[in-house]
Every structure is written in C-alpha cells, then in structure tokens.
Design a protein around this nucleic acid. Structure first.
Length: 584
DNA sequence: GCCGTTTTCGGCCCGACTGTTTTCAGTCG
C-alpha cells in the first residue's frame, strides 16, 4: 500500500530535523519543512497523483518531489535511511529538552559524546557540560530543569477545552486591572486548534508594562516562571500548561494580534509578502523599509489591507492557501469561503438519551433543551445493541417511539427517530434492513476493534457506507484528544464512496473529539461530501458543544452550504430517501 | 532546496530573552 500524505509529511519532517542536527544549510532544512507542510495541507493523496505532477504542489520542488516519488515507489527514502544511520536517535531526543536546540545537541554529541537523555543527565552530574565554551553553571542548571520539565511536557498538548478554561482565568485576572486597556487570547487557542501547547495572552496598555508582567508572573495559578522580561513573560501554569504574555501599546494592537495569533508558517508567509512590497512586518506594525514609516498597526484589518489582503479569519491562518485566497492585489476578488458559524447550525443529528446506557438525561429533557437552543430538528441516536451493556435492541427502539412521539408533542421540535449503529468487525451493522427502515436517521460508527490497521478500518467503513440505511459515519477516526490518537483511515476511498452514495461524514463537535480532524474535513468538503456537525450530546449542557464544532469546522474551510446540519429538515429527509431509493 | 509584482540567480521573517559573550549565538515563538 502506498504511503498516506501524513506518512510522507512525517518522513520529510524527519529529514529536515536530521539535516538541521547535521548542521546543514538552514534554507535547505526549511525547504524540507515547507514541503512537509505542503503535503499535509494537500487536498489530494499524493499516491494517486501522476509522478510528473508532484511538483505542481506548491512547496514541492525537484528534489523533494523526487524523495516523495522514491517513497511511493520503494517504500523508503535513501537520504532518510542514511541520515538515521549517521545521527543517533538519542541525539534527536536531546532537542526535546527545553533549551536544547540543534546546535547544542550537536555540540553535546560531537564534543562530549552525549548521545541520549541518560548520558546528558550523567554529563550534567559530572560537570562535563560546563567545560564547553559558552556553557556555564547557569546553563547547566537550565538544562537540568529542562530535563525535569521534559517529563511534564511529555503529557503533551492539552485538549482545547482544558486550555480554554485556564486561558479564561488568566484573561480575567488581567482584564480586572485598571492599567490594562485590552486583553485577548491569541495563538492556537484563537485559531481553534484541537489541542493547545501553550496559551498566548496579549495585553494593550498606555501604562508601564512592567507591573503588568510582574502581576502576571505572580498569579496564583502560576507554578513556575520561565522568562521574565519587560515585554514578554513565560510561565508554567496548572497542568503543566505554558502561558506567554506580551504587552504592547494600543497603537500596535492589530499588528501584535496578527503576530501573536500565528501560525508561525502563516506569519512567515505574510512577512515575505511584506518584503516584496518594500515593507516589513513585526509585532509593532507594518512599516516601510526605506524610511521606517508605519503603514498599518492599529487593527488586523488594516494590516491585512495594507498587504493587499482581505481580512483572514484566525481559524484559516495555517499557511494552507489562505493568503492566496485573500489576495486583492490588482483589484482581484478574494476567494475566501463564507465560513460556517455557530448561528448557522439549525439541526443536530447525533444525540443520546437515557434510553441507552450512557445517556444522562431523559429523551424529553434532551428534546426540550434542543428546542431551547432554537434548533429546527434533533435526532436522538441512542446506541444499538452491539455495544454491550449500553445499547438497545430492536424491541427497545420500538418502545422508545412512544417517548419520541411525546417529546414531539410537548416541545414542538422535529425529533428524528435515530440510532447510532456499531460498525462491527466485517463492516456489518447491528440490524437488518427491516429494522433499519423504521428509523429516520442512522449514524454508524466504529466503537470496537480500534486497533486495526488503515486498510481494515477503511474496509469496515466502506461496507457501512454501502448500506442503504447508513446516513453518516460518526466520529470517523475515533480519536480522543489527549487520550488516544485514533485509528488511521484511507480518506480518498472513503470520500469517493460517500460522494457516490450520498453518505455524510460527521464532524463530532465534542471538544474531547473534534472528529473529523480539520485537515480531513477540508478534503471532505472539497470532494463535495456533506459534513454533519453534531454534538453527540449525552446531557443537555453538551448541546452547546455545537459552538465548538461550528468554529472548528472553519479550519476545514467549510461553508454553511457544505454542512448538512445547516440545511432545513427537508434537505436531510431528501438525502435519506435518495440513498434508500438508489441503493435499497 | 524553493521560488518569482527586485524572477532562472540571489535571496530566503522577525524580535525578545538568556547566558556568557565584551558584540553575539542559540533558543523560542
């Protein structure tokens, strides 16, 4: 089986990392990094592309395309094999220590023979590290602390909802100060990445920034101070989450927000754009290179406009085509999508009641809460019997129909009679056609056998898609943020089958899932496959997770027209009827 | 190694902080 885009991207990233450790030209390193990013953002499987078209992917040039072709043809890349042989695995591990970059790792290895984290620990103990020119006792202490922090860091990025609540506390504490004019959370939190490695807080003030920094570093939820400057502070908060504070003048708010929101790759892209216009962009403003006059700085819209760009939503800022799409140079019309917003959602097609074992509220309570949110329709999709201890059998679903009828009566809401089917080992689902035909809406999802390889999971999902009664694939990768990565799937084949059969893919809005991942969801909407943003709510308050789902879907460049739960109920019913008619 | 509103060569984002440096390299975001 040919490698997926993700695998290819990882290989090129590793080459970049090893070339850097090898002390090679940094622009060559960056070329490999950019090629990896380009592959990850590509909307086609490179394996399906004719070899001579690989270089049409922007960021892939002669050499990097050749490496990709080599991997697709042979499953290996000679350059990568050679680098791996020359640079010990342990040396790469050194750069994971905060404060150790490629240069230090190389020196530790070349000059002290340090080739692993354990050997670094030993070299610190014997005082060998401080014998290196440029590294003294304080560096030694820093590396020791870095080694300790590494273990906390290995708990890795936090799910966005966890980081969000810590960020709100930081924000509130700063907003309460009289000398703080504005405060905002930027970084990956503002871009709504599904996991967050650190929280970036931006403050604007006319006053002296030093007391604000001091107060920030002294907050109760701060465990440790990493950096203490007048313009910048870094701390470690609860749960090992790093938080960075930047304080700027109100005049620089827009430029600082652009800078601090990132992503890094996006920033690099627009700074290059500035250079080509004789301008330079930093966190204080966009200015002319010749005389330094500031052209724009107060608002993001100003900064973008001065670069001949329409304003770019933070959720798109990943250097994945958004700068090209925002281009207004020469009177061009930007091609940015009209992004889906929480208020565009008018339905929810995945929810639970206490009819199945894991629901935490009655069907009536859930329906009333859905009606309160102003939804036009809500599907109650309790688990089917294949999920032991939890699921309902056919008789149970038949009994549930009375409760559905009652809920429709009392709430006036269109409650759809739904089910969350289990995709079993060979791709079969819990019930036969005669039982399935009675439902209004069927979600099918993998709940068991999460450990299978990509080919097996894909076959199971394809079998479910071929079922005339399956309308959507629920949480398609099975990931749980911060807990498990999810199984791999071959998306290309799945998208083809979805498009052919009129089957939707769910974007599960639970902040512990956010599944489909945005990169995959973007490919789905590009392929014309319906996205179903649903909450999978097991309790009334979880219906509000729809907001997470809608905003996260912006990262997939999704418009309301591509989201089924933004469509009226008639459209949903037509989709269901069409599939049954064509395949039934 | 890639790329083009300075185009097929000569560039390649920008600044804060730290440590150990008398002027800067490394790391980080």
């Amino acid at each position: 089986m040919a490698a997926s885009n993700a695998t290819l991207a990882r290989c090129l990233e590793e080459i970049a990392e090893l070339l850097e450790l090898d002390g090679q030209d940094r622009f060559r390193v960056r070329a490999y990094q950019r090629a990896a990013e380009a592959i990850r953002a590509a909307d086609v499987d490179l394996a399906r592309l004719p070899r001579e078209e690989l270089t049409t992917v922007k960021g892939l040039g002669g050499s990097t395309a050749e490496r990709v072709a080599e991997h697709l043809d042979t499953g290996r890349i000679a350059l990568l094999d050679e680098l791996r042989q020359r640079i010990p695995e342990g040396v790469r591990a050194l750069t994971r220590v905060p404060g150790v970059g490629p240069a230090t790792a190389r020196r530790l290895h070349d000059e002290l023979g340090v080739g692993s984290l354990d050997e670094l620990r030993a070299a610190l103990a014997t005082g060998a590290v401080r014998t290196l020119p440029g590294l003294g006792a304080r560096s030694e202490a820093r590396l020791r602390a870095g080694l300790e922090r590494l273990e906390a860091l290995d708990a890795q990025r936090l799910p966005i909802a966890t980081a969000w609540s810590i960020a709100q506390e930081l924000r509130a504490a700063l907003a309460a100060r009289e000398d703080v004019a504005r405060v905002a959370c930027a970084g990956s939190l503002r871009r709504l990445r599904e996991t967050v490695g650190d929280v970036d807080v931006l403050v604007a003030t006319e006053a002296d920034p030093a007391p604000i920094h001091a107060a920030f570093r002294a907050l109760d939820l701060v465990d440790e101070v990493l950096v203490a400057g007048d313009r910048k502070s870094s701390v470690v908060t609860r749960r090992g989450l790093q938080a960075d504070l930047r304080v700027v003048a109100p005049d620089a708010w827009g430029a600082a927000l652009v800078y601090f929101t990132g992503s890094k790759a996006h920033n690099v892209r627009i700074r290059e754009r500035a250079l080509r216009r004789g301008l330079t962009l930093n966190e204080y403003g966009l200015s002319r290179r010749d005389d330094g006059a500031v052209v724009a700085s107060r608002a993001e819209e100003e900064v973008h406009a001065a670069l001949d760009l329409a304003w770019i939503a933070p959720t798109l800022r990943e250097d994945a085509g958004e700068v090209e799409a925002a281009d207004t140079a020469g009177g061009r019309t930007p091609t940015l999508p009209r992004l889906v917003r929480p208020t565009d959602l008018c339905g929810d097609l995945h929810g639970h009641s206490d009819w199945s074992g894991d629901g935490r509220a009655s069907l009536g309570t859930m329906a009333a809460a859905a009606a309160d949110r102003g939804l036009a329709y809500w599907a109650v999709t309790d688990h089917a019997a294949g999920l032991p201890q939890v699921g309902l059998d056919a008789a149970g679903f038949a009994r549930r129909r009375e409760a559905i009828a009652a809920a429709r009566e009392t709430t006036g809401l269109a409650v759809l009679d739904g089910v969350e089917l289990n995709i079993l080992a060979q791709g079969a689902v819990d019930f036969d056609a005669d039982v399935l035909a009675a439902f209004d809406w069927c979600v099918a999802a993998i709940h068991t056998g999460l450990e299978h390889d990509a080919a097996t999971q894909t076959d199971r999902i394809l079998a479910a898609i071929a079922n005339p009664f399956v309308n959507a694939i629920g949480h398609p990768t099975g990931r749980r943020l911060g807990q498990r990565p999810g199984y791999e799937i071959e998306l290309g084949a799945i998208l083809e089958a979805c498009a052919e059969t009129g089957t939707a893919l769910e974007l599960n809005a639970s902040p512990s899932r956010l599944d489909l991942p945005a990169e995959l969801a973007r490919r789905a909407v590009t392929a014309g496959v319906w996205l179903v943003i649903s909450t999978d709510a097991h309790a009334p308050d979880e219906l509000a997770n729809a907001d997470w789902g809608a905003t996260y879907a912006q990262r997939a460049w999704a418009s309301p027209a591509q989201v089924l739960t933004c469509q009226p109920l008639e459209r949903v019913r037509r989709l269901v009827a069409d599939k049954r008619e064509r395949l039934g």
